[in-house]
Design a protein around this nucleic acid. Structure first.
Length: 470
RNA sequence: GGCGCGAUGGCAGAGUGGUUAUGCAGCGGACUGCAAAUCCGUGUACGCCGGUUCGAUUCCGACUCGCGCCUCCA
């Protein structure tokens, strides 16, 4: 059984799909005007784990994650760069895909682009106008919030309370301060699409209503995104979708991840305190970043600090040490479960932890305990459980997916440049000769030389192993 | 101003009404020619004040502090 914390009900409850034959998930993807930062990467990794768990539990899952390739930030950046919005967004999409791939984020089943769904948006807006939930004013089409009595139900805000905030944009053409734009006119330097209301472009929220409906139908099971999207973005999506498609809710479960926090402050590009994923990927192994993002519960605000990546790397070292030993005694791919399939005992504690609202820190704690049983050479049932746990770590968490050799010798590292493997081998051979001759001084000099170049030697019963120093 | 979230050992981070995860770091030991890796041992933490209870870090209330949303935002 899977339980999830629903932002709307503010509690954990058992997940029951609307259609168990096809579980449908939608996650708000990136706006491709610039490289993403580590905080942006969090929902990508977290909901990747969610989808992996859902695939374990249900025969079919349809996962849609959109790309916003038209919006005011993209327009502004493209103009600044002297390129078209299409050129800019396509370039950023390529980079985004490369980075997701590096992080082990599996591609979604559907990845709709906003610019490919303009027709659907226009149709949706027309429906809202027809149903008197929207109106035209000065070239804009606006959603009329008072036309929807239940507006605010998702984020549980009261109209009066929000008005008191006095931070609501009150454009003169709005009938109500909360009305929001569905369609807006484009000016000279802006991309524009023809519509019944003149040439223009969509508002921010409409794309998700149109694309989730196109990809999944409405309502669907799970809608995810960062907590900052709860209001107004998701609230407005609900308004659009429910009013257009006649349903009481757009998605039955709403999941929101917390922020990565920089010095007690939300990490964001507008605050200028963001750490780019591409920079981190140039310095740290991708598995380290993934481990970091899964080492805290997804709903908790999580402090950013460079040290955390060092810790994550060391923790992965421990896991890969165990994995190397496991590979020697019980290859993951070839070891069948000896426990009864489908019995409760055959479900790993990793899976149990993840099924409880994606408790990834607990899952990692379990994994470390299994690693310990492996390095302690325990056999029998505990070893079988460890094999299962490591398999689930790969399949569900997307961790420990490399060979130990690749992990320890990969050259994405803070301290090493690329180095000649032939040279390492020859140094190892020379050192072995010196050791056989009991010339330990020379042997240690050779080892030190390699150490200076970022290579650590280990004398194991199976022979000399080398690792990169981190 | 409104609404919401959080406060756990050096750092990170789960969890639980009573037996106190996990990782990283530290310290002592074993192993090793010396190391590395590994193993063994080692740290009685839960913001403050009340209340409920035989017993609270865990439940309730007040307080303090921090953060977030109400505007673009993962």
């Amino acid at each position: 059984m899977l339980t999830l914390y629903n932002t709307q009900s503010k509690r954990k409850s058992a997940f029951h799909p609307l259609d168990a034959r096809n579980v449908r998930v939608y996650v708000c993807g990136p706006t491709v005007y610039d490289d993403i930062h580590i905080g942006n990467a969090r929902p990508m990794v977290v909901f990747d784990v969610l989808v992996r768990v859902l695939r374990r539990l249900y025969p079919r899952v349809t996962y849609a994650r959109n790309i916003t390739d038209i919006d005011d930030k993209i327009i502004a950046r493209a103009n600044k760069n002297n390129e078209s919005t299409a050129e800019l967004s396509q370039r950023m999409v390529v980079r985004f895909h490369e980075q997701m791939d590096a992080l082990g984020v599996l591609p979604p089943d559907k990845e709709p682009l906003a610019t490919h769904h303009i027709d659907a948006m226009i149709a949706l807006i027309a429906t809202l106008l027809e149903k008197k939930h929207a109106y035209v004013a000065e070239g804009h089409v606006l959603f009329h919030v008072p036309s929807m009595p239940s507006y605010g139900a998702l984020s549980q805000r009261k109209r009066e309370a929000m008005l008191a905030g006095a931070r609501v944009d009150v454009a003169p053409y709005k009938k109500d301060p909360f009305d929001f734009v569905l369609w807006k006119p484009s000016h000279k330097d802006m991309p524009a699409w023809p519509s019944p209301w003149g040439k223009g472009r969509p508002g921010w929220h409409i794309e998700c209503s149109a694309m989730s409906n196109a990809c999944l139908g409405t309502p669907f099971d799970i809608h995810g995104g960062g907590i900052d999207l709860l209001f107004p973005h998701h609230e407005n999506e609900v308004a659009q979708s429910c009013c257009a498609f006649n349903c009481t809710n757009m998605a039955q479960v709403w999941l929101h991840n917390g922020y990565i926090v920089m010095n007690d402050e939300k990490m964001s590009k507008s605050l200028g305190n963001d750490v780019r994923l591409c920079h981190l990927l140039a310095t740290y192994p991708p598995q380290t970043l993934r481990y970091f993002l899964l080492s805290a519960h997804y709903r908790q605000p999580t402090p950013w600090q460079e040290k955390a990546l060092k810790d994550a790397t060391r923790a992965l070292d421990t896991l890969y040490e165990a994995q190397a030993r496991l590979a020697a005694v019980a290859p993951l791919k070839d070891t069948p479960d000896s426990d009864t399939p489908d019995s409760d005992a055959s479900i790993s504690d990793i899976q149990h932890a993840l099924a409880d609202d994606l408790n990834t820190p607990l899952a990692l704690a379990h994994l470390h305990r299994h690693a310990k049983t492996i390095t302690k050479n325990v056999t029998g049932a505990p070893l079988r459980a460890a094999v299962r746990a490591f398999r689930d770590a790969q399949d569900l968490l997307g961790l420990v997916t490399l060979s130990a050799e690749d992990w320890f010798q990969s050259n994405t590292s803070t301290t090493t440049e690329s180095i000649d493997e032939t040279f390492i081998r020859s140094m190892i051979t020379q050192r072995e000769e010196a050791r056989r001759a009991k010339d330990f001084q020379k042997a240690d000099e050779l080892r030190d030389t390699l150490y200076q170049q970022g290579i650590i030697l280990e004398d194991t019963p199976q022979g000399v192993q080398w690792k990169r120093r981190r």
